Simulated assay, not measured.
Amino acid sequence: MSESELRRIKVLLVDDEPFIRLTIRQILIQIGIPPSNVYEAENVKAAVGETLRVRPSVVLCDIHMPGDDGFAYVATLRTAPLPDVAAIPVVMLTSDSGEEAVMTAKGHKVAGYLVKPVSIGAVKKAIERALKVILP
């Protein structure tokens, strides 16, 4: 993927923890995604609004958040009446490595599953797989 293509990738981070969002934002910038293309939401309601507004290339979403969880977000996304929105790839980014959570994620047809803490390489590979591209 060229640098100009990389600069067009838009990522939505969905996590209730500001520190996690900051950490992942820094990883995305190190990968080469411009800071202006990294969007954030602290809960599912905000995430749905940002998704419709921004139309991200990929979403990195926590599972456990106050109120609705990340699976509720993915379910909402997958049933969106807009095909381009319903098809946005989602990578779960969570501290939950339990079998039930992993199986639920698979049932929601997520594009990836990362267990926190994550490395730059793991985030890069997950985005590459989700977008089916190779990042520089």
Rank of each mutant, 00 (worst) to 15 (best):
A86I: 09
I33S: 02
L77P: 04
K124P: 01
G112T: 06
K106F: 15
P34G: 06
G107H: 07
I88Q: 01
V48D: 08
A47T: 01
S119Y: 13
R53G: 00
V44P: 03
H64F: 10
K10C: 05
I88T: 03
A101Y: 03
S97D: 15
V54Y: 00
V58P: 01
I9Q: 00
A75W: 08
K109N: 05
I63C: 09
P35F: 06
P81H: 13
I9F: 02
R7F: 08
V48S: 09
P18K: 12
S97E: 14
T79V: 11
R21G: 08
D68R: 13
V123D: 05
G32K: 02
V48W: 15
I27L: 15
G49M: 11
V90R: 08
L135R: 03
K125T: 14
Q26M: 14
L28A: 04
L135S: 07
G49D: 13
G67W: 07
K132A: 13
I33C: 02
G98M: 10
E17Q: 13
G98V: 08
A87N: 09
P117V: 10
L77E: 11
S97L: 08
P18M: 13
R21W: 07
L93F: 09
L114E: 10
A101F: 06
F71V: 12
L13S: 04
Y73W: 09
V118A: 01
V44D: 08
I134A: 14
A122E: 15
D68N: 13
D69F: 02
M1Y: 04
C61G: 11
E100C: 07
V123L: 06
S57Q: 04
I63L: 14
V118W: 04
S119L: 13
T94H: 01
D16I: 04
D69A: 11
M1G: 12
L82R: 10
D62K: 07
S36W: 07
R21S: 10
N43L: 11
K124H: 03
D96E: 12
I24D: 00
A111E: 09
V59W: 11
L13I: 13
L12T: 00
E42I: 06
D62G: 11
T76H: 09
T76G: 05
V38R: 00
K10H: 03
V58Y: 06
V118I: 10
S57K: 01
V54E: 07
D69L: 11
L131M: 09
D15V: 04
A105I: 06
G98S: 15
A46Q: 06
P34R: 04
L28P: 03
L28N: 05
Q30G: 11
D16F: 05
I134H: 14
V90G: 07
R7V: 02
L28T: 04
H108G: 01
I134P: 00
L28D: 05
T51D: 03
L93P: 06
I127A: 05
D15I: 03
M65V: 02
V115E: 09
I120A: 05
I120W: 09
R7E: 12
G49Q: 12
E40W: 07
P81D: 14
V59T: 13
I33P: 00
E50W: 01
K106T: 11
N43M: 10
D16V: 03
